[in-house]
Design a protein around this nucleic acid. Structure first.
Lengths: 277, 277
DNA sequence: TGCAACTCCTTACGGCATAAAGTAACCTCG
DNA sequence: CGAGGTTACTTTATGCCGTAAGGAGTTGCA
């Protein structure tokens, strides 16, 4: 299920998102001193989501991590969905903002895309926050400001850039999501991608004996020019590059797909510039 | 939450996915005659998901639509996640497969992308099925075979095409997701995109008075060259094209983003061809 | 000193997927 | 033709979830 942003009272949501740290005047209010804080809850939420995924993020789990009950959180945060918004914007603060445009916009955008990709893999749950109703927090705007600055160096008009920004985000999110979900699935089910693929493709061959007649191009796409390491009958003796066993095969494939796809998109942007110029 | 494919017994899953319609021999088994069928359940599931979204898809809801309890479904389908897999592959059968390559691969891929985009908007819940562990059903392979056929017309090597296929899918899914989630959010919350944006941006201006100093390029990106129709103070008197009020502004923006982004990617593919050739 | 405000807790409700066990329908074999 | 095993479907129950409601204890100010 996708989580929607911004359902509660807009003013309270925005105040929470943009709350400033410096404004901690000498507290003077009746009632027991609060032992928790919005920040502590947001941090605990991120810790839970990083460690066990968005599916394991429950108010009970976050409360437990802080030694409280689930209901204690509602003093600080209006609802779970607002907590997720706060977690999202807080995590986004990790993204770098200071890219050097001197080597050209293409290098800068490439660095940005790679940093963003790595960020998504550090916090895969971020990919499950809906983009339809943006959170509108400081760090979301900060991240947007960062890419936009790099892209204005192309000297393309704003109307074209609005579309290109969207395309880049869709692409980075989409490719990162593939890897993130693969890891999540592996962790959640205890079955690695390789094991999963092996058992499935074996069964597929049994259940669908005429597979290669029905989908010849899929077969060709998946086998031609593959430097592989066993598990599906391809040659595993002559792989040329030193083989890094720490990263699973499918994940390295996904990273390459990301790099090649990014290059294709950047080529397309350059073509747009030449057409406009 | 994202739903993972393929957790149960692989053989049972595959048999369900690839089950053939013709094999209905004269039934001869003890026990009451089954009133339901896998197909009826899958259709009911799709009906629920189309009408009320993936979040409303519960075993109870599907059973209710068939006049049964939730538990009745478990005779036919091993679990909810397997039901979603079956729904996914069944829905994919709607996608066209017979694109004409005579006008060139670019036109064919453009048609494919637009048909796929429209398919996702007809069945937005499809976008919430994880891509990490593919369902491996007949229609998923059919859809893949279709794109791959179009792309082999570029005469690029398989290794390059593997990446390009992924890039295209990420892009189409990502852009469709924006619109799909926006509609879903509007339906779920009862607040239209325009209303939502209006109230949020008003509050944003109050809570963050120095917004335009902190994010000048975001402001520039969002205001420059916008042909708008009210709601945010832009000029709404001189829009040139006949205005179609039946489609919300943000959705038309998203469609344009899709078209421009697709053109950028296709330009990138052409650049790759010229480099390789 | 009391009261109002505040934090945090316990309890409870209706939802979810699904395990377990019960009931009734039906075919086949004796 | 009737008993027994198999099957379709139901009821009930378990342990999750978000969160509403109300209560208990702590604190600052009048």
């Amino acid at each position: 299920m996708v989580l929607f942003a911004g359902q509660g009272d807009p003013h309270r949501s925005m105040s929470l998102l943009w709350r400033k740290e410096g404004s901690a005047g000498p507290r003077s209010a009746p009632g027991p001193k609060p032992a928790l804080s919005v920040d502590a809850i947001v941090d605990a939420g991120i810790a839970v989501a990083d460690a066990e995924g968005m599916a394991a993020l429950s108010m009970r789990a976050v409360g437990e991590r802080l030694g409280r009950t689930a209901m204690a959180l509602y003093t600080y945060v209006p609802s779970k969905s607002e907590l997720v918004d706060l977690m999202y914007d807080h995590a986004l603060a990790e993204l770098p903002t200071d890219y050097d445009l001197a080597p050209g916009w293409r290098a800068a955008v490439t660095s940005w895309a790679e940093d963003t990709w790595e960020f998504y893999l550090r916090h895969p749950w971020v990919l499950q926050v809906s983009q339809a109703r943006p959170v509108l927090g400081p760090n979301e705007y900060g991240a947007l400001e960062t890419v936009v600055r790099l892209l204005y160096a192309t000297e393309l008009p704003s109307a074209a850039l609005r579309r290109i920004v969207g395309t880049l985000f869709h692409f980075v999110r989409g490719s990162a999501q593939t890897v993130a979900e693969a890891r999540l699935a592996a962790a959640a089910t205890g079955v690695s991608d390789e094991e999963w693929w092996q058992s499935r493709s074996t069964v597929l061959g049994e259940v669908v004996p005429d597979f290669s007649d029905r989908f010849p191009l899929v077969i060709r796409l998946e086998t031609e020019g593959v430097a592989h390491h066993g598990t599906d009958g391809a040659n595993d003796t002559d792989s040329s590059a030193p083989y890094d066993d720490s990263v699973p095969y499918l994940e390295r494939e996904a990273k390459t797909t990301f790099e090649v796809g990014l290059a294709v998109i950047l080529d397309g942007i350059e073509a747009t510039i030449h057409k406009a110029g």
